[in-house]
Amino acid sequence: IYPNALSPEQFVITLIEAEPPNVLLMNRPKKPFTEASMMMSLTKLADKELVHMIGWAKKIPGFVELSLFDQVRLLESCWLEILMVGLMWRSIEHPGKLIFAADLILDRDEGKCVEGILEIFDMLLATTSRLRDLKLQHKEYLCLKAMILLNANMFPLAMGSNDPDSSVKLRHLLNAITDALVWVIAKSGLPYRQQSNRLANLLMLLSHVRHASNKGMEHLLSMRCKNVVPVYDLLLEMLNANTLQDH
């Protein structure tokens, strides 16, 4: 399905159908958490969610038409942002709590057992609180999440992409997802003058998601370097890629 062949409404319906299932931790560790047991729970959950994230990305109209190089670069750049914005959506009705999974719900102070994680919990809770104040709608959330993926990387993408028209396709995709978000906001019945203000407020929050993700990546790397938690498979690959990318 080519994105510009879809109406904004059809694009949003496709995003609804693309939504990944909510993942469960399954074997929940006993409380109180230790630094190791909390990090182990969070990384196990992240690894499971990452597999579903790839299935989700492939269902976004036009994503698999991008070059494989571009698909990898986009996911490599924003995977933690996507996990975090999903966490915020699940937590939006639960002030002071982070709903990592239905069987992994953490109060803010439970983060005290992991060195350096409270700062990140507070960023996540603050951004979630702002989304709650804005009364973020589900369809707006779906558009923002897809926008994070499609907007995840630019300059190296343009230069490095071995498929020049992939960048053109990506720009079409970004326009299509922007049209979809504008359409969702317009459908909400807000007075026209307030629609652009709402769009700006939602887009401004994406920089906070990116900031929390950068902090989270640093923290996860430090936890791994200190051998607090073993990291395997896809999560290890994505984490290493960020390390290499920084260098």
């Binding site: 597999v51 790839i54 299935g55 989700w56 494989l68 698909q71 990898v72 490599e76 690959e237």
Partner: peptide, 23 residues
């Protein structure tokens, strides 16, 4: 090639069948 090296699992999951297979 460095990107492919860095992302063996990701490449495989992106190229494998339907999204539901991946999940």
């Amino acid at each position: 090639s460095s990107l492919t090296e860095r992302h063996k699992i990701l490449h495989r999951l992106l190229q494998e069948g339907s999204p539901s297979d991946i999940s």
